[in-house]
Design a protein around this nucleic acid. Sequence first.
DNA 1: GTGAAAGCGCTAACAG
DNA 2: CTGTTAGCGCTTTCAC
Lengths: 337, 337
Amino acid sequence: MTVTIDDIAREAGVSTATVSYVINNNEKVGPETRKKVLQIIEKRDYHPNSSARNLARKKTEVLGLIVPEVTGVFYADIVQGVEDAAFQNNFTLYLGTTNAKKEREKMMIDHFSGNRVDGLILTTYFINKNYIKELKNRDLDFVFIGNPVKDDSVSTVVVDNFSSGYRAAEHLINLGHKKIAFIKGDPNSWDAEERFAGFKAVMNNYDLEINNDYIKTGNYQQEEGYKAAQELFNLEVKPTAVFASNDQMAMGVYKAAQENNIKIPEQLSVVGFDDIAAASHLNPPLTTVNQPTYRMGQKAVEILIKKIKGQKVPEENIVFETEFIKRNSSQKKSKIF
Amino acid sequence: MTVTIDDIAREAGVSTATVSYVINNNEKVGPETRKKVLQIIEKRDYHPNSSARNLARKKTEVLGLIVPEVTGVFYADIVQGVEDAAFQNNFTLYLGTTNAKKEREKMMIDHFSGNRVDGLILTTYFINKNYIKELKNRDLDFVFIGNPVKDDSVSTVVVDNFSSGYRAAEHLINLGHKKIAFIKGDPNSWDAEERFAGFKAVMNNYDLEINNDYIKTGNYQQEEGYKAAQELFNLEVKPTAVFASNDQMAMGVYKAAQENNIKIPEQLSVVGFDDIAAASHLNPPLTTVNQPTYRMGQKAVEILIKKIKGQKVPEENIVFETEFIKRNSSQKKSKIF
DNA sequence: GTGAAAGCGCTAACAG
DNA sequence: CTGTTAGCGCTTTCAC
C-alpha cells in the first residue's frame, strides 16, 4: 500500500491542500501545522507521486538528453556536464542513447514528447529541418549540442570544427609537412565533415595538393584508424603526417605505425582531435584538439532551463573555443625520410 | 495548446475510451475505427501525456540508474549496457549521478522514490543496511551492481573483486616479485577494499611480507596514482612491482616511472584493474583485469524487469567472471635491479 | 466493438 | 492560515 497525500492529511488532521502546501514550501502554512505534517510525512516515509504532481502542474522538472552513445569520452563528458548542471537546477535527467542509428534517434525523440520531459538536449546525426519544424510544434523546449543542421531558429552550443581543423592542419603545414593525410570520421557525422573542410581550406590556402590517396574514411573507431593507416603505409609515396579526425582513430594510426616500424614523430607526425584522457599517455603523447565538452553540456542546460522557465531568450548559437594542444606526436618534417 | 485525448476523440467522433484503446493496441477496436483514429493522431501529431498515463496505470516504464559518475570507462560501460537493455525492453532511463558524495547519493535515491521510476539500479558507495530496509518499504524494485553491503536479501550483480585481486597479485608473485606495492582505491569504495583483501590474502599464502610503506591509498584518479608512485620511488628499498587497484592510477604510475627514469617492465612490473580502453595502448600495454561491465548492466536490467513484471524471482547474487589480461607491463623480476 | 464515468494523486484557485 | 473542490489527461470497468 503506497501512502498518499490523503493518508497524510487524514493522519495530520488537515486537508490535502495543506499537506500540498507544506510539500511545496508554501509560506502561508503555520509553523506548527507545518511541523506536524512534516513529522507524519517523515514517519510514513511519504513520497509524493510525481506523475500526479506533474499532471497537475503540467511540468515534470526533467530534462531529456539524447546522445549517440555514452562510452566514448566525448559524450560521457557531455552527459556528466548535463547531469551536474541539471542536478544543480533541481532537474533530473532522462538519458536516451541512439547508437547513431537514424531510426532509433527518431524513436527516442518521439518518446520524449508527451510531457515526459520539459526540455530536450540533442546531440544527433540525422535530424533534418523538417523534423525540427515538427519538433517546434510540440510543447517542448530544446537545444542542440553540435549543429547537424544550419538553422538559426534553434539554439545550439557548438565548437568551431572548421577552424579547429584548419588550425590543427596548419600546425602540420608549419612544421614543413606537405604530404598530409586526413582520416575522416563517420560519413554521417557533420562535425567530421567540418573538420575535413577546414583541412581542405588550409591545404588550399597554402597551395598544397590534396591527394585523394591520402584521404581515408573511418567511423571514429580505432580499428578504422588502424585500417586507414595500413592503407596509407602501403602507398608508394607515404604521407609524412596524418591528421585523424578523432583521437580513437589516431590511436589506430599509432598501432599501424608500430607494426610497420614507422617511428612517430620522427618519420610520421600525427595529430588527433578530442583530447581524450588517454591522449597524453600515449607514446608519444598525442598532439590534438581539446573540446570543452563538459562545459558545453552545462551551457546547454543553462540555456534550456531559461527557455523552460519561460524567459524569452533569443535562439542563440554559442560557439566554444577549442584548444590546440601540442604534444610530441608531431614535429618538423624530417629531411631524412 | 497541446492536443489531448479529448481532442482526438472529438475529431474522430469516438469516445476517449476508444482512442485510449487504439493507443494501447487493444484488439477490440474495429479496423476502420482504429484507422480513422490513427489517422487523426498522426495528423495532429498527438503524443499521450505520460504523466496522466502513468498516474492512471500506476507505473512509469522507466528505470532509474544511479552511478557515481559517468566519465570513467567503468561506469560509462555500465550505463551503456543498462540503457541498451532498457531500450530493448521498452523502458527508458533516468540517470542520476552522485559524484560519490554520500549526501547526494541519498538525495538521488529519495528523488527516485514517489513513482518516478518502476525500478532502480544502484551502484553506490555509502548505502547501508538500514537504508536498504527503508528502501524495501517503498513501492520500488531494485538491484545493485556491486555489493556495498553483504546482504542476501537484495539482488546484486557483481564481480569477484577478492579473487580477481588475488589472481592479479599472484601473477606478480609467480613472476618472482616479492616487494610488491599496492595502491588502494577510494577509501569508501568497497570494491577497492576487496581487491586489497585479495592482495593481502595471496601475500599471506605465499609467506610474503606486506610492507606498510608499500601500501598507498588513492582515490582512483590518475593523479593520485602518480603521487603514490612518487612516494614509492622515494623509498630506500623500492618495490619491484606495483598493483594499482585501477587502470587510471596505473597510468599515474607510468607517468611517475617515466619521470624517474624507471623502465616498465624491466625495472618495475605494474598491473592495473578495469582494462579501460587506453590500457592496451599504453607503452607498454598494461597488464590488467577486465570486468564485463556492459554485460553486468544488461543483467541488472534483466533481473530488475522480471521483478517489476511481478515475477517472483528470488533475490539473486550474480557473480560475473573477470578476465586477467597479461600484457607487457609485467615481467619476470629482473636480477639486475 | 464502443461509450459513460469513476478514479489515479496532486495542485491551485477560491472562499472563508 | 486552512479547507473545498474542480480539474490535470488518461485508463479501465461495466454496461450496452
